[in-house]
């Protein structure tokens, strides 16, 4: 199966802002807009999937299932973007280099199509699975 090796960057988007500000973090639209990786078109085509197909993104720190989408901000080969939120922050390199601020804009990750039964968790499910259940 194809596996992309890319650099992950993150940040705010207008959709993320709108859902967040209207209190919609537990709604499906938050998962759709924020639980997605936006890939360069050529990188995306290498995966041989349709837009909004679940993919597994893995970094040294964790792995998470998100939807794959084609970036409207390309070309940016070798760079993938996940909007700021709990999905991207499972993957982000937390090291701050004594600055207080982690590497939100540059974490090496791999991207591959997810197994057929896997799909992105919504925010409450994600917090439960990755944090509450892990600590219990």
């Amino acid at each position: 199966m194809v596996k992309l090796n890319i650099r992950l960057t993150s940040g705010g988007t207008i959709n993320q802002g709108q859902v967040t500000k209207s209190g919609g973090k537990s709604l499906p639209m938050y998962t759709k807009h924020v639980g997605s990786i936006f890939l360069d078109k050529d990188d995306f085509n290498k995966l041989q999937v349709f837009p909004m197909t679940p993919v597994k993104v893995r970094s040294e720190f964790n792995e998470v299932i998100v939807y794959a989408q084609i970036s409207a901000d390309g070309p940016h080969p070798g760079v993938g973007f996940i909007p700021r939120g709990p999905w991207c922050n499972l993957l982000v390199d937390p090291y701050t280099y004594s600055s207080g601020c982690p590497m939100f804009k540059d974490t090496p990750v791999t991207v591959e199509p997810a197994d057929s039964h896997e799909k992105p968790l919504n925010m409450p499910e994600l917090m439960k699975k990755y944090y509450i259940e892990k600590a219990a």
């Binding site: 922050n89 982000v92 937390p94 944090y131 600590a135």
Partner: peptide, 17 residues
């Protein structure tokens, strides 16, 4: 603020404890 969304996993893991 929503550090659960906006902080990296290692920081959030400690918030649970």
């Amino acid at each position: 603020a929503d550090p659960g969304s906006h902080m990296p996993q290692r920081a959030v893991e400690h918030m649970v404890k």
